[in-house]
């Protein structure tokens, strides 16, 4: 039978632990910062390329 949401989900402490699990490297905040920082760096780089090769 196709499990209902409650049947499939881990329970209690197990689910809480999973939700709070830290990444295997760095921290979530640091990883988010890397992703957004890369976007900022790319926009700057592409802006420079656009200006230089206009």
């Amino acid at each position: 039978m196709l499990d209902s949401p409650t049947r499939l989900s881990p329970t209690g402490v197990e689910r809480r632990e999973e939700m709070d699990a830290a990444p295997p490297f760095l921290s979530w905040r640091a990883i988010y910062a890397i992703v957004l920082g890369a976007l900022a760096a790319e926009v700057v780089l592409f802006g420079v390329l656009t200006a230089v090769y206009r």
């Binding site: 949401p5 989900s9 881990p10 988010y32 992703v35 957004l36 890369a38 976007l39 926009v43 592409f46």
Partner: peptide, 27 residues
């Protein structure tokens, strides 16, 4: 290329707001 500029931002937002809610109910 600018069409994809929203993707990294969206990935962070989906990771923070959507994924935990879907996982919470194991939908």
């Amino acid at each position: 290329l600018q069409f994809y500029f929203g993707v990294p931002l969206a990935m962070v937002a989906v990771s923070v707001a959507f994924v935990p809610r879907f996982y919470g109910l194991r939908v």
